[in-house]
Design a protein around this nucleic acid. Structure first.
Lengths: 144, 144
DNA sequence: CTTGCTCCTCCAGTCACTAGAGGATGTAGC
DNA sequence: GCTACATCCTCTAGTGACTGGAGGAGCAAG
């Protein structure tokens, strides 16, 4: 009963990935072209749902689609050599470390901003002042 | 001398915001429509540059344009309390903290995976699991 | 006056979705 | 079987926050 196939709406509810997004992922090849029923509707199984949850969490962590593709390839290709898997894991690891470092710096600045704000008038507000002072860093507009 | 007028390229160099991005900010109303010289070129003054730096810094901290619009309008009204600015900063801080926590968990898994791979155990990769049930709630995935 | 940079506007493309049109299918009640 | 309504299908276009290019005008130096 719950074991076999979910239509796309159920898959969306189960994974937190919206219906059009699931179709989009199929279109760009992040999700496989799943089987269809007699009426041409997509049917997902438990493995597909796990893949969707994986993708959602990876996106929430700020990985782009290409990075997720390589992460998924670790699973998709069990024949893959150790060296390949190791290389992918290590390069993703490096990316994650950079991201953590950047976010940690960002957190420090936000904390400093918020903590020193005395909740007084705007013209004494530390949040506004910090922003107006500009960054030391003329680098990338980084989010993550 | 320096606080008279900068053409857009000088403004870009001075603030670290790219030329097309400055024009884009004007288009969406984050920057005012500045005055032009005889040859129709934009001329920026010191206050404009400060505003650009403010925007750049806020973008680097991950605030979206709407938040920046609010912060800028707060800045323009120094009599108000800074409760709103404080709230915007704190909510961004909360997002950043969630992200750091998840990335830290992912880093541990990738490290673990890289180590296992190095010992030849590809088929027990836990990266999928980490991301698949790692973060937070959303729909429970019927296990399998 | 020519070279070469900077600037102008407008339009297209990027990434990862998101929303809508217009139509087919599945399901529950009568 | 028939109706009502939810869910699904494909396709196209829009979003945010830019980025890049075309095609042309302005300006400073040699």
């Amino acid at each position: 009963m719950r074991d076999r196939s979910f239509p796309i709406g159920a898959a969306a509810r189960a994974t937190g990935v919206k219906v059009p997004t699931i179709r989009y992922y199929e279109g760009i090849g992040l999700m496989p072209t799943v089987s269809r029923n007699a009426g041409n509707r997509r049917l997902y199984d438990a493995a597909d749902l796990r893949r969707l949850v994986f993708i959602r969490h990876a996106r929430e962590l700020g990985f782009d689609v290409e990075a997720i593709r390589t992460l998924l390839s670790l699973q998709d290709d069990p024949e893959k050599t150790c060296a390949d898997a190791h290389a992918i894991a290590r390069s993703r690891l490096a990316e994650v470390e950079v991201r953590i470092a950047r976010l940690t710096a960002l957190r420090a600045e936000l904390e400093n901003m918020a903590a020193q704000c005395a909740r007084g008038r705007i013209d004494e507000c530390r949040v506004i002042e910090t922003l107006a002072d500009g960054g030391h860093d003329h680098g990338r507009l980084a989010d993550a």
